[in-house]
Amino acid sequence: MPGLLVSTTVNGDAIEFVCPQDETLLDSLRDRVGLTGVKEGCGTGDCGACSITLDGRLVCSCLVLGAEANGREIETVEGLADGDKLHPLQDKFIEYAALQCGICTPGFLIAAKALLDRNPNPTVEEIRYGLAGNLCRCTGYDKIVRAVQAAAKQMRKK
C-alpha cells in the first residue's frame, strides 16, 4: 500500500507528512512531525496520554488515523504556551506540584484546557469527571485537581 500525503495544521503551522494508511495519528505526530510531547500509554484510548484537540475537539490521537488529519487543525501540548509565556495551566501544574513523573502531564494539560474552554468555572466534581479520561498513576489526582482550579481562577481574571 502506498503512503498517503497528509496536509494539516499543527499548533498553527502548516505541516505535510506521508504516512502508511494504517498508521495512527499518534505515531504520525511522534515519528513524522517530531512532536514527542504526545505520549503513548496504552494505544487503546484508555489512558489519555496522547490527548490532542482535532478541530477543537478533545480526542485520543491513538484512536485517529494519521490520514484523518488531512485538512484539519491539531493542537498539542507543544502549542500550549504563548511564545515564552507558559499557559496558566502549565504554570499552575508546576506551582502546585501536579506532576511527579510527568508522562501523563501533556495529556492532562490538553484535556484540562478543553474542559476550561467549555466551562471556565468548573466545580471540583466537573473537573474530576472532565479529566476522568486521563490516567495518572503517581499523584492520586489531588494536586492535579487543585492546579486546574487555580488555573481556572487565574484565567477568569483576564
Partner: peptide, 21 residues
C-alpha cells in the same frame, strides 16, 4: 520550602525526553 522543580518546564511543554522519545 516548596520551590518549583527544575524539570517542570520541560514536563509541561512536551520537551522532556522519556524512554520512547
Amino acid at each position: 520550602t516548596r520551590p518549583r522543580r527544575p524539570d517542570g518546564v520541560d514536563k509541561v511543554t512536551g520537551r522532556a525526553k522519556f524512554g520512547a522519545d
